[in-house]
Design a protein around this nucleic acid. Sequence first.
DNA 1: TGTTCATATGAATGATTGTTCATATATTCA
DNA 2: TGAATATATGAACAATCATTCATATGAACA
Lengths: 124, 124
Amino acid sequence: MPNGISTQTEIECCDTHEIHRDLLQKVNAAMPDEEEISDLSDLFKVFGDSTRLKILFVLFEEEVCVCDLAELLNMTQSAISHQLKVLKQSKLVGSRREGKSVFYSLADDHVRSIIAQGREHIEE
Amino acid sequence: MPNGISTQTEIECCDTHEIHRDLLQKVNAAMPDEEEISDLSDLFKVFGDSTRLKILFVLFEEEVCVCDLAELLNMTQSAISHQLKVLKQSKLVGSRREGKSVFYSLADDHVRSIIAQGREHIEE
DNA sequence: TGTTCATATGAATGATTGTTCATATATTCA
DNA sequence: TGAATATATGAACAATCATTCATATGAACA
């Protein structure tokens, strides 16, 4: 390899247990730190459940209270409440008390675009 | 309710176990069917794991083979291989054999934007 | 204050999932 | 063909998680 202009094509892959330095450097530079990766996977875990997605789709339309959600999705008030807690902890939804009821709503619009991108990917 | 122009402000929420018709209709119209919701949550589940996210971040930079991934992420070849299978089933990555090695790469750019949106949400 | 209605929460349970270990498949080379 | 290397895969185990059930908190109203 006299002048190392493009070393991309060489396939000395796994026998030498030294990864190509360029790659190692590039990856380390681009890879978020462990904590951000962990936060990110936690965020996507929240989207990875049918019940929570349904709740979000309802909130796309309108702010609603817990018992309406339970009724709309045909689920226990308790189950809904547990999931709302998860959604709230990830700051995907916010809540507001009004008398005996608590109304939930979307926190911001990242939610919409993340889900929109997901739907695009599925439809192929 | 003589003329029903805006019924939004009435808060007869949960005592009457009949959900407001407008809401029910609106939600039913916007809610994807059960199968799409399920596919969508399955897709997000894939993003909801640190190892798989790290693999994707590597693939953002370059096409790599399995053993390089294992080395880069300091994990077992088996663990990586199992996760690559998941990523491939969701069509987030593609693979290409070259001799003994198999090279993996990003399947499309939805992956980038989904993850980018996720990162934006976290940084608040 | 006591009752009722709406929501929250802790413990328990069944289901799902990521990793490990052992092993199988596939390709190259002698 | 046989050995060596790279990858894939099935079973098992520990950990995580969504729901249920019972109960607690909190607000309104008599």
